[in-house]
Amino acid sequence: MPPSKPRRSPAPEQRQRDSERSRQRILEAAAAEFAAHGYAGARVAAIAARAGVNQQLISYYFDGKQGLYHAVTGAWWEYERELVPPGTPFAEAARRYVLQALHNPDGMRQFAWRGLEYTGPEDDPDRVQRSERIRRDVDAVRARQAEGALPSDVDPECLVVMLMAAAMAPVTLPQVFAGLCDVDPRSAEFLHRYAEQMAVVTRMLGLGETTQ
């Protein structure tokens, strides 16, 4: 029987590709787990099982559950910058956010879980980044108010949060839509219908073509 050939070590570029694939699988699995159970309910073992990797890799790449959560939220904000870049009109932004319930429901659910689990500023990992991003919308609303497009008694900060909550309603209140409209609130048909209504309401408020 001929002697077996010595096993070759993977080339550095192959190891790099394998590492990147493992990290990506972990991030995708974590996004799904956090969306399903929130930060408190998510389990590192479950994330590893979803990703098909050894649990120790999560500690190696992300320094544990908290570091992984920060990586997932950071990935969301990078995605959000591409989804709604500066200069996007409010009406179009509202439409795109609603359709995340169709294209990226895990991202919407993660955002909702952050609110449900909120205990205070000290336990809010993306507080600064999120607030800076939303401040851009508030400033745009305030500018329209200064132009006379909105009444002076409208609170720009409250209005922006109201619009955010409305955009997330198909994810946070699906049972209300199902009972009231007799539809599947997860269907593409309904989500496109609701997205267009969000754009209509935004235009009615005088913000339709306002850019963020």
Score class of each variant (00 low, 15 high):
residue 10 P to K: 00
residue 13 E to K: 05
residue 17 R to T: 13
residue 18 D to W: 12
residue 22 S to G: 08
residue 22 S to D: 12
residue 24 Q to D: 11
residue 24 Q to P: 00
residue 27 L to V: 15
residue 33 E to W: 02
residue 35 A to F: 08
residue 37 H to E: 12
residue 38 G to I: 14
residue 40 A to F: 06
residue 44 V to P: 00
residue 49 A to F: 03
residue 49 A to H: 10
residue 60 Y to H: 10
residue 61 Y to F: 14
residue 62 F to T: 03
residue 64 G to Y: 14
residue 65 K to T: 00
residue 65 K to C: 06
residue 66 Q to W: 06
residue 68 L to T: 00
residue 69 Y to T: 03
residue 74 G to H: 13
residue 74 G to T: 15
residue 75 A to P: 03
residue 79 Y to V: 03
residue 80 E to K: 07
residue 83 L to Y: 12
residue 83 L to E: 14
residue 83 L to Q: 14
residue 86 P to Y: 00
residue 88 T to C: 01
residue 89 P to W: 01
residue 91 A to R: 06
residue 95 R to D: 07
residue 97 Y to N: 06
residue 97 Y to M: 05
residue 99 L to D: 01
residue 99 L to M: 09
residue 100 Q to A: 10
residue 101 A to F: 05
residue 106 D to Y: 10
residue 111 F to M: 14
residue 111 F to S: 12
residue 115 G to S: 11
residue 116 L to S: 14
residue 116 L to I: 15
residue 122 E to P: 04
residue 123 D to P: 00
residue 126 D to G: 05
residue 127 R to V: 07
residue 129 Q to I: 15
residue 130 R to C: 11
residue 132 E to T: 09
residue 132 E to P: 04
residue 134 I to K: 11
residue 136 R to W: 05
residue 138 V to F: 01
residue 139 D to S: 06
residue 141 V to W: 06
residue 146 A to Y: 07
residue 147 E to A: 11
residue 150 L to N: 10
residue 151 P to E: 11
residue 156 P to R: 12
residue 157 E to G: 11
residue 157 E to W: 13
residue 160 V to C: 04
residue 160 V to A: 03
residue 165 A to Q: 15
residue 172 T to K: 08
residue 173 L to S: 12
residue 182 D to C: 04
residue 183 V to C: 10
residue 183 V to F: 06
residue 185 P to A: 07
residue 186 R to N: 13
residue 186 R to H: 15
residue 186 R to V: 15
residue 189 E to G: 02
residue 191 L to M: 11
residue 192 H to F: 06
residue 193 R to I: 05
residue 196 E to T: 02
residue 197 Q to K: 04
residue 199 A to D: 02
residue 199 A to T: 00
residue 202 T to Y: 00
residue 202 T to G: 01
residue 203 R to K: 13
residue 203 R to L: 04
residue 208 G to A: 03
residue 211 T to M: 07
residue 212 Q to L: 02
residue 212 Q to C: 01
